[in-house]
Structures are given as C-alpha cells and as structure tokens.
Design a protein around this nucleic acid. Structure first.
Lengths: 141, 141
DNA sequence: AAAAAATAGTTGCCCAGCTAACTATATAAA
DNA sequence: TTTATATAGTTAGCTGGGCAACTATTTTTT
C-alpha cells in the first residue's frame, strides 16, 4: 500500500503542514501564502539580498522566486531596486508595510509551528531532523 | 534561520524526493509524473475504483484527481466507464498499455525508493515514520 | 578590442493542488 | 410525491514549482 511508503508519509506530512499553516494564516485575515511568508522572512533576515540568493536559501529556482517577488511587490510588502554595482542584480528589502505584516505574522507562525511539533521531545525533534537530512544527503549524492 | 526549521526540512525533503524521482523516471524515458504514478498504482491495486476513493487513499481532492485521471486517460493508461449501479460514479481500471507501463516502472520506482532510504536501518525508518505520523496527528486534531 | 562564456532575472508552458461554483444523479424528509 | 439534501465529478481561477528559451548585463578569452 502506498500509504505505508515512507516517501509518501514525508510528502503527506509536508502537505498537511502547508495546508494547516495556510488555514491559520487565513483565519487571522493574513493575505499571504505560506511560501510567500518564507520569502518575506528571508528578505527580512537579509536586507538588500538578490533573488538568486533567496533561491539558494530556500532551494527554489529562479522563475519561482521571480514570480513570488513580483507578487510580494504588488502587495507592497517589499522594495526592489537595481543594484548600482551590477545592473543584473536587484537589491530587495522589506517595506514598511512588510514590516508591519511581519509583526502580525510572527506570533501566528509560532502558533502554527507549535501545533505540530509541540508534543515532540527535543530528542525526537533532533532525530527527525537527522533522519531527514540523511535522506536528503543520499538523494543528493 | 529558516533552514533550521523542522517544517522546512520536511518540506524540502519531500521536494527533493519528488525532484529526484521525476529525473529518474525521465532518464528511463518514462513519460509520466511521480504523482501520476501514484494514481496509477492505486488504480492497479483497486480495480474498478472510483475517483473519490482514489482521492481518499492519496489524500488529494476531487479536482486534482479529476485532472490526473483525465491525463492518464488521454495517455491511454487507464479505462473509465460509468458505473451501472450509480450513474454518478465512474469505474476506473488499468488498460493494457497501463499494465505494460507498470511493469517498466516498478523496478525504476524500487531504484528510487532505495536511493534515499537504503542507508537507514529498520529502526530508523520505523522512528521516522512514527515521528511523522505524530506530527500529522497533532495537526489533524 | 572583439568574441565567447557566465550570471541575474523574466517569460511562457505545463502539471499539482487549493477554493468555489457548478452539473447531474441518488437519497432522505416533508 | 415533491422538495431538500447529499454525493461524484467537472470547470475555472489562482499559486507554486519545474523546464527551456530568452534578454541584458558582466567577465573571460583570444
């Protein structure tokens, strides 16, 4: 049975997390997707970052980041200006609107994070992390 | 950092598995997606199944299954006929082409499965499974 | 200095997955 | 029996993510 397949369990868990996260954001009237939140978070941690670097951090490709940056820009949560040093780059940073949003979203994200992981001990979390990284490493090699 | 987030590790692992799986299928000249393979597999295990039930097994919604069934039908891998008992249902089964494909794909899927999981002990796999289900259960509750 | 290669980003096309609204059939209630 | 409700499936619109091909700037080679 497919449901006993370990890969499928990983995939399904990821999907449930995303789904749950999205529903909590929505219930708080927050108008961004989980993925957009991740991008916003990276930009917040790395003022003036360029798109390629965002992609490296989140392990997403250029077109994906391109589109997400555009939608965050349209929503007014970030700023994007051509880098003066190298005209191929853009320098991306959080806008004031974006900062306001971050403050609202942070506690909600914490609520989401706790919901699924709360009942795991530190050791369990560590184990889970190690096992996932082991699988990733096998695949990458 | 986002990369240390446990949710993100689960999500990233899932994405890497899918990506790797897709590339191996492609390298063997197999013209279906990983997701389509899952659907095909469920149909193969449950002759005459209807779409809703496929969705229940794979935890996917009706529109998703509807589209995937259509594309598998267009590729000639499955058959779809209205159920005589209840005209709202379709009865779906593998075609001869589909069976041929299954025979080709099975060993490839096994190769994919082993690549990531091979180095885990039975206990590790069991642990991983338990931890993932625990998270799912927390989220569902 | 001119040609070739590398880099950052965008666009277009396709599939997966979510929501909401819809059709059609079957079942339950009034 | 007619009306309401439940069920199976489809369609449409949106986002995420994958690939390939493209533009526009560097940087490297020759």
């Amino acid at each position: 049975m497919i449901n006993e397949n370990l890969y499928y369990k990983i995939e399904l868990t990821a999907r449930k997390i995303r789904h749950y996260g999205q529903s909590v954001l929505k219930s708080h009237g927050i108008n961004i997707t989980v993925e957009q939140w991740l991008v916003l978070n990276v930009i917040n941690d790395n003022k003036g970052i360029n798109q390629l670097r965002i992609g490296e951090i989140l392990v997403k490709d250029k077109p994906t980041i391109s589109k997400m940056v555009r939608s965050l820009l349209e929503k007014g949560f970030i700023q994007k200006e051509v880098s003066s040093k190298d005209l191929r780059h853009y320098s991306i940073s959080i806008s004031k609107e974006g900062e306001k949003l971050m403050n609202v979203v942070f506690p909600v994200v914490e609520e989401i994070r706790l919901k699924g992981i709360n009942s795991l001990t530190e050791i369990e979390k560590e184990n889970l992390s190690i096992l996932l990284l082991k699988i990733q490493k096998n695949i990458d090699s």
